[in-house]
């Protein structure tokens, strides 16, 4: 029972991270109809930026998180502008290849600046908390709680503000939104800002617990992709539910079946679903 609760908690913690990262990606994919394959690498960069402010400049954890958020947001805007916008109207495969170029660039950038060895952000909340018979660090609890707060805030932003509703409208129906005179370019920039900034938050939450490495973005990016495809491109609830679901599958599958093949469960689930329903679980029906 204790093992189960421990795995359940871990699953929710990973799931929170997945949910945030997938949320950013689903907005971007829904709006631009391009696969930002480098999204996981933006997450990685966000972790390193936080690390930089804390370790090199001695800033506090929360200040660093905030700065990382803003800086990464602008990195996202720049990426949209120079990598993806020139490719609108081109065959989709070209945007995909450009995204791969961008991710190679970002990974090499981290490698050049910080080197291949893992880095760790000093844990700002190392206190141990006992609850329901399981022990955990406060930071882990912060990941779960912080993610929930962030998701609620994002949800309110998308539903209650004009900017947010515009973004969701474009995400769900780009052509329709263009007809109503929405400036799609501005919406694209904004969405990239939000999606990158939230990725930075997720990375800053998690990197005091796990080490940072230039390669960590790749697998996370793939998982975010899987969640977005399963949850439906542009679907916010799909990304959130999918994120938690994947976190739980991995934690329970990894805990009870095989820890080595933990990642395979996620990929296996995707392959299975796509082969039954090629447009994704909640994907729009074609034709």
């Amino acid at each position: 029972m204790e093992l189960f609760l421990q795995q359940l908690f871990n699953g929710i913690m990973f799931g929170s991270t997945y949910a945030i990262v997938a949320l950013g990606l689903t907005l971007v994919m829904g709006i631009l109809h391009i696969p930002n394959f480098a999204h996981g690498h933006l997450y990685m960069l966000g972790g390193y930026i936080t690390y930089f402010f804390i370790t090199n400049l001695g800033f506090g954890y929360w200040y660093s998180l905030l700065l990382s958020m803003v800086i990464l947001g602008f990195v996202g805007v720049v990426m949209e502008r120079i990598v993806f916008r020139p490719l609108t109207g081109q065959p989709p495969i070209n945007a995909f290849i450009a995204a791969i170029g961008a991710l190679i660039f970002l990974e090499s950038l981290a490698l050049v600046i910080w080197g291949p060895q893992g880095m760790r952000i000093p844990n700002p909340h190392p206190q141990i908390i006992k609850m329901f018979g399981i022990t955990m660090e406060a930071q882990r609890l912060l990941v779960v709680g912080g993610a929930a707060v962030l998701i609620v805030l994002l949800h309110l932003f998308l539903k209650k503000t004009t900017t947010g509703t515009t973004i969701e409208a474009v995400a769900q129906n780009r052509e329709g939104a263009m007809l109503t005179g929405i400036n799609v370019n501005r919406v694209s920039s904004m969405t990239f800002f939000i999606s990158s900034a939230t990725a930075a938050v997720a990375a800053s939450f998690l990197s005091p617990i796990f080490i940072l490495s230039p390669a960590m973005g790749a697998v996370l990016g793939m998982k975010a992709f899987i969640i977005v495809i399963l949850g439906g491109m542009g679907s916010v609830p799909g990304a959130i539910l999918g994120g938690y679901f994947l976190g739980l599958i991995e934690a329970l599958g990894g805990g009870y079946i095989s820890a080595e093949y933990k990642d395979v469960f996620a990929f296996g689930a995707l392959i299975l679903v796509l082969s039954i329903k090629p447009t994704g679980l909640f994907g729009k029906q074609e034709g």
Binding site: F96, M222, I229
Partner: peptide
């Protein structure tokens, strides 16, 4: 291909990538 060719475009790329990573993990484990 039996699975992957049911999908198109990006989805095909992602599915093949997933299979590629699975093969990598098998080689490692």
């Amino acid at each position: 291909g039996l699975f992957a060719f049911r999908t198109r475009g990006h989805f095909f790329a992602i599915v093949t990538l997933c299979f590629g990573v699975i093969l990598f993990q098998v080689a490692e484990n």
